[in-house]
């Protein structure tokens, strides 16, 4: 009971805190910094969700932008294409009021996450047969297929993309609220998975698949589950980003984006949620800070990346975490312990 109460309080505090922060930030923050902050949030969700697949379960997936794109386009398709088709019959779906916007955003989120999750399921299946480099190529191939499809499907705007997406998350200044809510969800979810016995089986697949199998771990199920959950979260990031930008085009989801997300996970230290969060922030903020260098910016950025990887090949954090209370060994109550 006490746990439940603490939970409810924690959730309430998070909601209220995020809401107030969201209001404050939208009015007080320079729009440019605000934009950077939102991008950080989106990429933290992407990096943390890819870390579930790559870092925790040990599958080398490098096509995360594909799932990001599926979420963004399906979410935008709801608000721009499908919602107008059904709103006549179901008037409660009307946008423009706060609760109408929230309802539509939730529907977009659900659709985006389910579609991305299904894509993750399909892409996860080869991981049962393919290992390492081969899986990497298959996932990158998937992301490219999505990219090319988006370029060529006219109903979603082709290369121009979709523009004029209703900005459901900025109404009531809730952009930061929604995005950081999902940041928190993805971090807490990763942490809870890693700390539970069932989640440890995900780590065992990364550590030694043959031994995991011998311990009764259904490695097939673990890998596919990791893919589905990781992609669904990337899908959520896509939905939110699309409704923040109000305009999306295939270029946002190109191979560069896939590589950027992968770099975040590797740089942070595969398997470390803390690392993913920090690396995502660094890789979004750093290029902005280097803007004064004008054209040399990307060169310096690349050099910095190389230096970081050379000095710490295991990533900034290795597999360590900050702020995760380590499982404390309770003193056994029996006297059987040797003194």
């Amino acid at each position: 009971m006490r746990i439940l109460l603490l939970r409810v309080i924690a959730i309430l505090v998070t909601f209220i805190g995020l809401y107030m922060l969201s209001q404050f930030v939208t009015y007080q923050m320079d729009p440019y910094y605000f934009q950077v902050l939102i991008e950080c949030g989106v990429y933290i969700i992407l990096a943390v969700s890819l870390n579930l697949i790559n870092g925790i379960t040990g599958q080398f997936s490098i096509g995360h932008a594909g799932f990001f794109a599926v979420g963004a386009y399906v979410g935008a398709a709801w608000t721009m294409i499908w919602q107008p088709m059904v709103v006549g019959r179901y008037s409660f779906l009307q946008m423009g009021t706060l609760h109408g916007d929230i309802l539509n955003l939730l529907i977009a989120l659900v659709l985006g996450m389910i579609s991305a999750g299904m894509a993750g399921f399909v892409v996860g299946l080869p991981s049962l047969r393919l290992r390492g480099d081969y899986l990497a190529i298959a996932t990158l191939g998937f992301a490219e297929v999505i990219y090319v499809l988006l370029l060529n499907i006219n109903s979603v705007g082709g290369a121009r993309g979709l523009n004029g997406i209703p900005t459901l998350i900025s109404s009531g200044n809730l952009a930061l609220f929604w995005i950081f809510l999902f940041v928190i969800i993805s971090i807490v979810l990763s942490r809870n998975i890693m700390q539970s016995v069932r989640g440890l089986t995900w780590l065992s697949v990364r550590e030694d698949e043959i031994a995991a199998d011998a311990m009764g771990v259904d490695t097939t199920k673990v890998k596919v589950t990791a893919f589905v959950i990781g992609s669904a979260l990337a899908g959520a990031a896509g939905v939110l980003y699309a409704h923040f930008l109000t305009g999306i085009s295939p270029d946002i989801f190109s191979m560069n984006t896939s590589i950027l997300i992968t770099t975040m996970v590797v740089l942070g230290g595969s398997g470390s949620v803390t690392g993913s969060v920090i690396a995502a922030t660094v890789l979004i903020v750093l290029p902005e800070m280097l803007r004064f260098l004008k054209n040399d910016r990307m060169v310096i950025y690349s050099v910095l990346l190389i230096v970081m990887m050379l000095t710490r090949p295991q990533g900034i954090f290795g597999t360590k975490e900050i702020g995760f209370p380590k499982w404390r060994r309770k003193q056994p109550k029996t006297e059987g312990r040797s003194a």
């Binding site: 016995v197 069932r198 989640g199 089986t201 780590l203 065992s204 550590e207 311990m215 771990v217 398997g271």
Partner: peptide
């Protein structure tokens, strides 16, 4: 074939997963 990067207790805890009654959602 141990789970090399994990600590001793976690190596053993993984093997107890067959007896967990909690599903992924509970986790």
């Amino acid at each position: 074939r141990l789970f090399k990067q994990l600590n001793v207790l976690d190596n053993v805890r993984i093997a107890t997963h067959l007896h967990t009654k909690a599903n992924l959602l509970d986790s």
